[in-house]
Design a protein around this nucleic acid. Sequence first.
DNA 1: ACGCTCACG
DNA 2: ACGTACGTGAGCGTA
Length: 875
Amino acid sequence: MTKKKIVLLDGNSLAYRAFFALPPLTNEHGIHTNSVYGFTMMLQNIIAEEKPTHLLVAWDAGKTTFRHKTFVEYKGGRQKTPSELSEQFPYLRKLLDAYNITQYELDQFEADDIIGTLSHIGDAEGTEVVIISGDKDLTQLATENTTVYITRKGITDTEKYTPEHIMDKYGIKPLQIIDMKGLMGDASDNIPGVPGVGEKTALKLLLEYGSIENVYKSLDQITAKKLNENLTKYEEQAYMSKELATIDVDSPITISIDELVYTGPDVDKLTSIYKELNFKTLLEKLAPQEVVEKPLDEIKVTIASDITEEQLTDTMAIHIEMMDENYLNAEILGIGLADADKTLFIDFSEVEKSAVLKEWLQNKDKKKYSTDSKAALASMARYGIHLEGIEFDLLLATYIVNPATSYTDVASITRELGYSEVQQDEFVYGKGAKKAVPSIEEIAEHASRKAQAVWKLRPVLEDKLRENDQYDLYRDLELPLASILGKMESTGVKTDKEILVGIGKELTLKLTDLEAMIYEIAGEKFNVNSPKQLGVILFEKIGLTPIKKTKTGYSTAADVLEKLESEHEIIRYILNYRQLAKLNSTYIVGLLKEIHEDGKIHTRFQQALTQTGRLSSINPNLQNIPVRLEEGRKIRAAFVPSEPGWSLFTADYSQIELRVLAHISQDEKLIEAFQQGADIHTRTAADVFGVEISEVTSEMRQSSKAVNFGIIYGISDYGLSQSLNIPRKDAATFISKYLASFPGVKQYMDDIIAEAKLKGFVTTLMNRRRYLPEITSSNFNIRGFAERTAMNTPIQGSAADIIKKAMIDMAARLESEGMKTRMLLQVHDELIFEAPEDELEKLKKIVPEVMESAISLDVPLKVEWEFGKSWYDTK
DNA sequence: ACGCTCACG
DNA sequence: ACGTACGTGAGCGTA
């Protein structure tokens, strides 16, 4: 027989905790589910870790308790429970019911008292008891047999209060926690305590006198005048506070420990509640085989050979089927085609053989509706087939309608639109080690279904785009851009392996030295790359003071280490080691792995991913190649032109986001500054500090630069204080001065938040949308985040629109000028080309011209360019 | 799989 | 009551 172990949960406290720890999730009916989800995670964790034989969730009963008789205002002034949380309580009850966990509440008593009483009984029996809550008051219940787990940051992490731990932490015994609360009070429960006494003073008094009673017996020994006065004046209040903070361990409960036996969940009930709440991952874990695919409608699949012109009509939906997501090197299995009355699958070996099909693919008068046009284009290009005539792109259309949904494969996209006739790729090909090529019949059906889905969904999406006034954005910006990006990806960037290897060797040498040095100073070997091990060395062995904590321990991030640099010599070696280790692993070893046989790196641009409209770059990411520090910048020397005698040419928009802000906000001063061509940070400094331009110091300019960044991000005093390393108050002063100097910006910030609340979304200059449902949240954090997003997205997103437009114009211009220059990369506000020597002069003229006239704003756009023999040299 | 750290705009 | 600047991707260690 296993040993008895009782786990007692504080239901209300944990529900709150889960609610605030998680982002707002909802099921398809808009019911909030985050608290239930978090609670479930905690519960699973507790059951797995503690393996309780007895389990109980205690709830607070109603509004009034016996404590209100002592003090009417007990728990007064509390914010009303947010409706997003209160609507979840019935589901929590149902969940626990499905788990077969006893729930208990008692009129006039709080959950604390129920827990206290039961733990008291268990303790007397000598049974092991674990109490779990977010409320530190419960630590008063810790005994030799009873441990109190208090939730920390996150939802499953807890701090375990045993009597020893409480002694270590506060220097008092568990029951003295009550005296501590009595003296210091508790704002959240509206327990007054003694004014002027906080945690420090309370602990000092208890260390000296042991209890509130003894403090008052020895009052004349307390010489601190103010403290003595307060203690004297508020004696009655101190005793009352102690009474309020005392958990009743003898409440009149009508339940016995035997009734708490935990036998495990009712899987059927659990499945039904998980379904109701849309907990997909939990459902899968519960019974992976139970998630059955609904049978699809039958379709007629034709596996074609000897393609004829008659089979290929003027307009068809097309999908290139590949097993791997990386279409730049994945094996092409075949092509699925569909129109109104048929589907067709062509095995890739047939594609290569069929001149008729190739002709059709390359004919721009034969219209194609695709699932992902960039993938289609780039994958075909590998076989010398230049796909033309793309008229529709399912991926892009869905993304423009709402960038928030996550797009993994065609099945998920179409399901989102209420169409469920396509199977998940995972289902067809298997997952992980079980991934394998199925029969040609299966592939044919899968690819045909995808093509058919595109055919059926195109009108739906086009209507939606028109309805949202986003058809132009889709048709004139994203769709043509897809082809351009496809070409850029196919072209790739020539990368000099030798240069990377050379830098790698130097780095390895330096890293070995640094490592040895660090071990010597630390007095032992450890993994410098492990924040956990490093934390132990720095903050336990060496004894430095931790400045910041993370969920899992001490933070060892660079900003923390920099603050400790003067404290110990080891820090600078660690910082240096970190910097070089990053360069070596990500940019030397990482990039070397990505060089193809053609000596080039072919990144892929994700065009339907970011929430703002920017692109992202993967496999590898070429949008974050080091530049800020010289050591890292040298990596750029490895990126070179692919033809002898050519150069790389880079052009970047100067301050595009601030210019966009000036335009959108119509702030007169900001517009004027840009029209005059002033250095914007200096100009901002002059306005904010109220001095002449000539009097602006470099510190003033630096602060203003940080404020300008902050404004773009949706400023907060905390954020600015972190970036400038100044007190929060000073940061707040800066911000208010800035907003007073630029009233148009202030007005914009207020207006955009109001607009987002009203419409539920914000838009960019070219009508890209981002929905912000969280902007009406009653949770301060979540709402604040949404508000900053509302301020930032139109700025970042409009800048993204502009450079996308510039890319389209630039590609057209290069074409019309008959130039050989190729566009290679886009890095958010920068374009990188490779060009033959004799086109450089022309580029210097047309690149700025095209980029600067991509859009007409009320401020000029400014482009700066460079060229050189490598990316490093374009500076 | 997830968190931390750090590279970029 | 709670912990934050906006947007990304990759490598590593740890679970």
